[in-house]
Amino acid sequence: MNQVISQWSHANQERAGKILDAYPEKRSAIMPLLYIASLEHDFASPDAMREVAELTGVTPAQVLSVASFYTMFKRDGVGKYLVSVCTSISCFLQGADEVLEAVEEATGIHHGETSEDGRFSVEHVECIGACGGAPAVQVNYELVEGLTPDKARQLIEWLTDSQPEVVLTDEMQQLFGGQRSFDWGSSEPEGAIAPVPAFGPYGSVGEDR
């Protein structure tokens, strides 16, 4: 197994090792490892990027170059709940701008900002593939479809009050969602524990298998 960063949690060290082994070339692991490093450092901080560089045998500048190309590696810190409001064409046609306004109002912050208490970050994003359930919002990349401005406000209030440790897409959809892109089928107890996609191999899943 490849060498990993020793101050990372044991689980993340193990994940990192597996990820490095999953590719023919180490450099391919930059993006997955950036997610793990973002969990360890709360965001894609310079230290996080330096660690990824070390693990993948490239320079920190090369990691920065990659990290800054993508919108999901947050280099300026991010709140506990990252609320991403889709304002792309299909959601726009269904009133996404009003949903964004409601979210901004309820959190008191605007696009690209993080609340002072570190609880929320808000951003408007381009299409997140939920056009059939427009307007759509993601919290830590977990999806809610068919929101209205009112429901969006309630969603933020609920996050503020109940502060879930794990953000579950099914739960949010049930409580605040409406029209869906398609029948979601059965629900499952997995979700995000941080503003990083909740994907087992990269960490961040609520009830990891």
């Binding site: 997610y35 993508y70 999901m72 996609p197």
Partner: peptide
């Protein structure tokens, strides 16, 4: 291997 993107159309 499943590889997740980073947000880039």
């Amino acid at each position: 291997t499943v590889h997740l993107g980073g947000g880039a159309y």
